[in-house]
Design a protein around this nucleic acid. Structure first.
Lengths: 130, 130
DNA sequence: CTAAACATTGCCACTAATGTGAAGGTCAAA
DNA sequence: TTTGACCTTCACATTAGTGGCAATGTTTAG
């Protein structure tokens, strides 16, 4: 598919897709006329990129961990680049920390919201009683 | 405590603490000489700010949700600012989405790392057999 | 077939958010 | 009175995007 279709499917502006290419996150092939052409699997990949960026993971890191995120445990593992495993473990652990942190704070927010609701109920009852 | 001590306790440079103040995330009092003075509870708060920023949450949002994150369900709930509950729920749900996304991808990374390890073991055994 | 409408390209510059560095001055403890 | 922590202010850096333009390719309507 061409850039416009991918943009529509991913909700990511074409402009941004070119930007991600510039950052080395996606590498579409080209048609004879120079137009970029994207394989289907890139739809999923672009969504992952968005999610990772939204989670505060810098593009430089994203480019390293993207290979892990493609569904079939591709034979790419054969690379065995030394240091890659290290980096992946580090980033995986950092991610786990982030998850725990977010869960903790999400739960605090939930309790706070419930406190608001409870306060609203109480004052309603107080008003009714008066 | 003064800015230097807070910087040491939180591992956040003093420069950055002034920046967060500028962004309205913390409001230290001042001594007669103009020095900033921080209460103990701000240590925790600064750590939260760091975590939230690292998780891709913009400071403008952080300033809104910070009140929820202070441990004692302070009587602050009395505010009942209309629209605040809405905003909190929205951000809480956004946070949940982020958590789910991160968990999913963290698990993918873990599987990939295991695949690397398994590949390494296999080739070691192959080498031994030859 | 031609012309208008639309998609894509590269390019350059600009914005917004989050920090960071450094100059020049004040404060206070040794 | 020197040293180190702190003050303000202005400017610069980095990351992640955006806007606009002129040129070219493609599609569609008359």
């Amino acid at each position: 598919m061409r850039i416009g279709e991918l943009a529509k499917k991913t909700e990511v502006p074409a402009r941004m897709l070119r930007y991600y290419e510039e950052q080395g996150l996606i590498s579409p092939r080209r048609l004879e006329n120079g137009y970029r052409t994207y394989d289907d699997y890139l739809v999923d990949r672009v969504r992952k990129i968005r999610g990772l960026v939204d989670s505060g993971i810098p593009t430089r890191i994203i480019s390293n961990i993207l290979p892990c995120l493609d569904q079939p445990q591709t034979i790419v593992v054969k690379n065995a680049e030394p240091g890659l495993r290290e980096l992946l473990v580090t980033e995986r652990d950092r991610m786990t920390e982030k998850i725990d942190f977010l869960i903790h704070n999400r739960d605090s927010m939930t309790r706070y919201i419930e406190a608001i609701d409870h306060a609203a109920n109480s004052s309603r009852e107080t008003a009714r009683a008066s």
